[in-house]
């Protein structure tokens, strides 16, 4: 089912003509998620927000029973701790955009 290499990402940043782009090598560019804020940029550079990342890496994904550490309850604790932490950061440090300056 996974025999063939998947298609490279949709040519979102280069327009429809980009589909003819050749795909050299055995390891294509990682199929990097992109952030959109007017332009498409590789996520590695314009990082996806931590919240989006944690929603997926911590909040979604398969939970395999029988793994060694941290039951699901603990994972939920992680989220709570993180939220508390982020909130406390916000209390002590004025958020950078309140002066009208987006990050």
């Amino acid at each position: 089912m996974n025999g063939a290499l998947p298609e490279p990402g949709p040519g979102a940043e280069a327009g429809p003509e980009a589909e003819a782009e050749p795909q050299p090598g055995t390891w294509p560019e990682p199929y990097a998620p992109r952030a959109r804020d007017g332009t498409y940029q590789p996520m590695a550079r314009r990082e996806v927000s931590l919240v989006d990342l944690l929603d997926r890496v911590v909040g979604a994904g398969v939970v395999v029973t029988g793994s060694l550490t941290l039951s699901i309850a603990d994972v939920d604790l992680v989220r709570v701790d993180l939220r508390a932490l982020i909130s406390s950061v916000n209390e002590n440090v004025p958020s950078p955009w309140e002066g009208g300056q987006p990050l």
Partner: peptide, 15 residues
């Protein structure tokens, strides 16, 4: 994801 369809596991799945 560039080479296959991964089933991502949750952060910190350890054996």
């Amino acid at each position: 994801t560039a080479v296959t369809c991964p089933l991502p596991l949750r952060l910190a799945t350890l054996y």
